[in-house]
Simulated scan of single mutants.
Amino acid sequence: MPSLKHYLLSGLIILGSAVAGGAQATNWTGYTYSSVSTTAAVKGMERIADRVDKETDGDLSITLHLGKTLQIASSDITQATGDGIVDFAADLYFSGNVPIARILNLPLLINNDEEWNKAYAVMEPYLQKGFDAQGVTYLGSYRYPQQVIFTTFKMASLDDLADHKIRVTSPEQGAFVEAFGGSPITLSGSEVPTALERGVIDGVLTASAGGAKNWHEFLPYNYRLPVNYAYSAVIANTSAHAALDDATRQTLDRIVSQETQQITQDFIVDEKTQKQQQADAGMTIIEADPADIERAEKKMAPWWREWAKQAGPEHEKALAAVLQALGK
């Protein structure tokens, strides 16, 4: 017959196992749309994962997977996060799921850092609400440099866009190209080099530290008219985020806030570096005529309002608030 000591020891072992089980680390699956590990965006996401593991003493660990290493299309990242297929993600292609976010992408609406900060302050609650409806918690975002015009043909003014085929990454960029007589074409990033080589497209809208970093050899001209900004949301599955203990959740949120700001700054620095390197390699870089920028903004302003009207009352309300903040 087992002794009292045996029962006590068994109870202690069971209790110890329960305590140990309760202290087990939370392991999250992370994902980013980018498949290039050397970009400021991926480096920043890796820093988030490293810092979270260290600063929570291993209570939360995030295994980050690069784009295309999981069977998740770039346009499906928001849904995959909401469904719990991944717990944490960087999502550049979220506007199909959160359409109101496109206000910050409208061409010629936002022309500098100061304007971005004012517009973003207005839009942040709308972003939080939009992602919340998808079962996703919006933790913050980082911003790419301004999207400018790179071409295979000489371009010195907006008039030179006419009759040329330009690769765009959004309907909003497409509207800009069409407004000045060009033809917008949507292609994945992997298709761009071949399309440029074969003349399927004559140019792209991107940044020096973005697509031009990889495609500059096909793009001898750069007209630096600031068309719009692109930005990526950093998100988490709402249930997984809520299940974290308060200290861990606060640590994660703080780190994401700090690192998204750093990613944006790293992109700004890299934009200057890449622009100079591209010039040194022979690219003809022309700063946009201020009169061209003013003309482009006046051309697109009525379109912003029409776009919002077609999208619905909430979009109209949000755009009106952004325009008021920008004094436009």
Rank of each mutant, 00 (worst) to 15 (best):
E197R: 13
V168W: 03
S74V: 00
S61T: 11
K298N: 08
Q276W: 02
S34T: 14
D53T: 11
E172V: 01
Y120P: 00
A325P: 00
F131W: 08
Q310N: 13
G16A: 13
S61Y: 10
G140C: 07
T137Q: 13
Q310W: 05
T152W: 06
L187H: 12
T284E: 15
Q324V: 13
G96I: 00
L158G: 10
A40Q: 11
T29L: 14
A20C: 13
E297Y: 05
A179K: 13
Q173I: 07
I268K: 14
G67S: 01
N111Y: 02
T264V: 09
E46H: 06
G84H: 08
E314L: 04
Q310A: 13
R224E: 11
G282Y: 02
G96P: 07
Q278C: 12
S3Q: 12
Y33P: 01
A301G: 03
K213N: 12
D57R: 04
M45P: 03
A119R: 02
S61H: 11
Q128Y: 03
V86P: 00
L244A: 02
M283E: 03
Q134D: 05
W303G: 12
L106A: 12
T194Y: 11
A296I: 07
D132F: 12
A175Q: 04
V269K: 15
D246E: 09
R167W: 07
